[in-house]
Design a protein around this nucleic acid. Structure first.
Lengths: 250, 250
DNA sequence: CTATATTTGATTGTTTTTGACAAAATGTAA
DNA sequence: TTACATTTTGTCAAAAACAATCAAATATAG
């Protein structure tokens, strides 16, 4: 059977049943498991379906980035350590920018007694900021519901109302050559603008982000101080040659 | 059976019956207790359900969050009626402004299928707007933590990025001579700006607001269509002489 | 036709999922 | 409270599914 025909059969089956197992498809197409696996990989690459252990399902629209609760529990201790270190740079009465994201979120408790003013694009931060009675300004813009962040031209133009003593950004990738990266170009643009508006720049990145590259470039390594945590299998010296790096040990 | 399919079955069952026991799910899915437990843990982590001893239930907040706890119980039926009426003015594909507040909040479910774009300064609206997958823009500005609204110069300047087909405002007072009023001058200023940026203006005011005066003036009666509910002890004819009034009967 | 490139199915070792079981925790009834 | 039954958690080994590799089969080009 021709490959396109097989692919069509697979897509039709999934459309009809929502899910499908490899075995179903072996019977349906009379091809081997290997072939079906290859087909599924290909169809996933084309974003037509979503592979799951044992088969495939209809694609969810929002699987590009993990939504908030999913991320939140991963590496939480690392994040807390990094956040605590980051917060130690904040001085009383400063105006700081807190990026949306789980690591920056963990900074909030440490900001409570500092009488700082916080500007953020992260909707998830608001409740905690309110609880600690921290003066907060929110960027405007389009509401990205899955990550609960504000993006778009509205956010960028809101930014021009503010200047920051320090900014604290989360990123998805840190790479010696490709710099700081994140999946969403819109968010990258905001982070880039923030970097320009702050006197001092900090990037918070746990060890899983090091030496990985995401789609959209934010800035070069040297444009911010990087705060990360130590891990035996990751060598931070290449980064240290390019920018100031703070390594947190748990 | 594939994991996502099992998860879906579990969620469907809980949606239908509100609660479920592990045994129910073992029978339903033909999986072992261990697997079901793992599924429930995972679904709880994703905040889809709530685990209880012996099984799982609908997530508490899911229903609660649709209407907020304190104010929302007061005159909630009146507000819902007014909100439904207000929403009936919204046409598909329009851009509308939804003011912060409990009455405007109740409009959200009725907007779901209309493919509208919503601009708002109400942080409490965001979760519901997200759940109904409504395109949302948020004003920027200072976060007033107690009412969870955005105010200040940042909010005003954000507004200039937008124009609205219709705006829906909440008010605290409606008076024949003193017009629409609200306690906070900052919020009044925002409402006033919004009125100017919209083609059509609506004010939502249940009967308790009629003939009362609050501190800060927003606009004259005639500058918006008023949507209210009927009550024997309030005479709406003075208002009807000055502006268009829609009276909702429960 | 031969040579080359592509697709396919089988095999390998590795990873993930699963079900079973024991120990700990929790709920219940006396 | 204690005693008892049920449920939960954590661990482990078996089973299923996986990615990677390779050689045979098939298709394509010259």
């Amino acid at each position: 059977m021709l490959t396109p025909k097989r692919h069509q059969l697979i897509l039709d089956f999934i459309d009809k049943h929502n899910t499908v197992t490899i075995q179903d498809l072996v019977e349906l197409t009379d091809a081997s498991e290997s072939t079906i696996r290859r087909d599924l990989s290909e169809l996933e690459r084309l974003e037509k379906i979503e592979r799951v252990h044992g088969g495939a399902t209809l694609k969810h629209s929002k699987n590009q980035e993990l939504s908030f609760p999913e991320k939140a529990t991963k590496y939480i201790d690392e994040k807390k350590g990094i956040a605590k270190c980051a917060a130690s740079f904040v001085e009383p009465n400063e105006c700081i920018y807190l990026d949306a994201g789980t690591t920056t979120f963990e900074m909030i408790p440490y900001l409570a007694q500092q009488n700082v003013i916080v500007v953020t694009n992260g909707l998830t931060h608001l409740e905690a900021l309110g609880r600690y009675e921290i003066s907060t300004y929110l960027l405007g813009g389009f509401v990205k519901h899955n990550t609960r962040a504000l993006i778009g031209s509205g956010a960028i133009s809101s930014l021009n109302n503010y200047r920051f003593d320090k900014c604290f950004l989360g990123v998805n990738g840190v790479h010696e050559h490709y710099g700081y990266t994140t999946p969403d170009p819109e968010e990258a643009m905001i982070k880039r603008s923030v970097l320009e508006l702050a006197q001092q720049q900090f990037v918070l990145a746990d060890h899983t982000k090091l030496n990985t590259i995401s789609f959209a470039n934010i800035a070069d390594i040297h444009q911010a101080t990087m705060i990360t945590n130590e891990k035996v299998d990751v060598d931070v010296t290449p980064f240290q040659n390019k920018t100031s790096v703070k390594v947190v040990s748990l």
